[in-house]
Amino acid sequence: MTLLAVQDLAVARGGLRTVEGVSFALDAGQALILRGPNGIGKTTLLRAVAGLQPPVAGRIEMADDAVAYAAHADGLKGALTVTENLAFWAQIFGGGDVAGAIAAMDLTGLAHRPAAALSAGQKRRLGLARLMVARRPLWVLDEPTVSLDAASVARFAAMVRGHLAQGGAALIATHIDLGLDAGVLDLTPYRARADSTARPAGFNEAFA
């Protein structure tokens, strides 16, 4: 079953095209790693897939409410405890097992600490635990391993593997080798050509 089909996608950041002509598909149980140099538009592409910004061209086909998105900001409230933070997102996403997610990311001992007291890596783990309670088939992850130590990266990779085994899919922008059985898509060849960068949304082609 295809969870995500992207065809001839072009995205723009700050009114300029970054990548164009990107096509790929993700079936249940598959993961795809996005690579490419800084500024190529990995984040922008992921935001487009998550539905946060409209693509400039091309099609993104998937079911409604299929995406769980995680980026640099974890959406945590410092004044709430670890459990409260996670329970909130579980309620919003109509979801899952809070205690299980806490255990999976090894946060059990911290469950009643306010999130403000966590270290950067612990916050990251909490942010990733949110994916498990969101119960969405398609994970869209932007540099998920930032500030994680080796043990936590392994734990996270196991979590992704579990998600894939349950019929989910993951689209991940990362430079770390997660040890996943995943396809790799290098965005470098899709960098927008110079003559098309300047036409973000149909304004300037009239001048061309």
Binding site: L52, A71, G75, K77, I92, R130
Partner: peptide
């Protein structure tokens, strides 16, 4: 505050 910590992005992708 929700914009800074990314909650707004997550709310926008939520079923709400």
């Amino acid at each position: 505050l929700d914009h800074e910590d990314g909650s707004l992005d997550l709310l926008a992708t939520s079923p709400l």
